[in-house]
Write a protein that binds this DNA or RNA. Structure first.
Lengths: 228, 228
DNA sequence: ACCTGAACACCGTTCAAGT
DNA sequence: ACCTGAACACCGTTCAAGT
């Protein structure tokens, strides 16, 4: 048997007694604390166990290897973000395109910057390529929510809502990530937050086939007017 | 002295004899090969040394620690990308805004997808947060090139070219990264490549204060017309 | 059912010895 | 000036023994 087993990323066993539930909980919070204190590259199973107040052996009873632990943590985090976006989606359904656009941007920024330190730490974790299918899953949920939103608005129809939703997610997710990964994210984040609403609006308008009474080219510019 | 020294990320010593230059070169190509074969998470100094045909000790004569090696490798790669963008910048200077926009997008896509496998492997490397000032430096060069470009065009002036250039880089860089990190990047990349030109154009037009003879709102829609 | 911690293999890094 | 490889500390993971 190999020393560094790869195996599945699933938890090894589910805690049944109350004591065990508390243990797993302690391991999770311990992991976050270690992550925040020393960063992903210095994160050690021993350190996590010590911080959680259990022995390494206990940790390995619930997680087959370190990556599975980080995977589970990332999963929780992405779950929260996907839910935020889905809630935003139902709240914004049937609204005008500009409202939808601004709502998407602010929901995304809020979700990602609620706890900047944790987001940053988890970006480093997610670099592990074995973990990428997870990111893919979360992305798909978010993308589906965005797509529903685009087809719900009465302002416009989109030729390829899937492509637009996909691009929107990649652009929002990627740009915010690239900013949060900087050493001092705050000023850059402020800059980006100021620009993204305009970027998102103009992209959506450029992608829409408007269904108003006005002629096409005039509608396009009318849509933009309250931006300035 | 700590076992896992952090220290500066600089190379430890510069090779003086021809033999030594060849050694360092072999270490670099060995690193890329190992990276492509087993990925960043399994990359080992011993493995790299073996692949390069030298002993570990030799490796550590030129690089104070593993991170310094990866840092140097990433540096070379980013250097190439920054140069590509700077060349594109001089080539596109003074051109109409639409030409500039399309040129930026295609230069970026070309630079990042020239060797997708290497780009992917290096994304995983760059997750190490200690390395982020490097990414910051490369970004600044690219951002400066974009900013020059925006102020060079006679089609339009920008109220805050710095903010626009910054956003452009974050959006292009982030979205392409998020796509290349997927398990099978090709189809997603095709999708994104189809959308980014329109996104970039519409964002630039929405950010520009046009200086033509026509009235503002008409100019805005005219700019978009050859997109459809 | 859950927990412990010594034990083992492997990895990063060093350094005395070689050309 | 450059290279080697055994040696050392530390990390991931296991497993026999405990409650």
């Amino acid at each position: 048997m190999p020393v560094r087993a790869q195996g599945p990323l699933k938890p090894r066993k589910v805690p049944r007694q109350a004591r065990a539930v508390a243990t797993v909980e302690a391991i999770f919070t311990g992991t976050i604390q270690v992550l925040l204190k020393v960063g992903a590259s210095q994160l050690t199973t021993t350190r996590v166990a010590a911080r959680a107040g259990v022995s390494v052996g206990t940790l390995y009873q619930y997680f087959p290897h370190k990556r599975a632990l980080l995977y589970a943590l990332l999963r929780q985090h992405l779950e929260g973000i996907a839910q935020t976006m889905e809630r935003a989606s139902t709240r914004l359904a049937d609204k005008p395109l500009n409202v939808i656009s601004d709502g998407i941007v602010s929901a995304w920024l809020e979700a990602k910057t609620k706890d900047i330190a944790v987001s940053r730490a988890l970006y480093a974790v997610s670099a592990d390529f074995d973990i990428n299918d997870l990111l893919g899953k979360g992305s798909q949920r978010i993308q589906a929510a965005l797509e529903r939103l685009l087809t719900s608005t009465m302002d416009a129809t989109f030729e390829d809502p899937r492509a637009v939703a996909f691009t929107l997610r990649a652009v929002l997710g990627g740009s915010v990530r690239s900013v949060l990964e900087r050493n001092t994210p705050e000023p850059s984040l402020a800059l980006l937050s100021g620009e993204l609403p305009r970027l998102c609006r103009s992209y959506l308008h450029a992608s829409a086939m408007p269904i108003g009474r006005t002629r096409r080219r005039h509608v396009a510019s009318e849509r933009n007017e309250d931006l300035n």
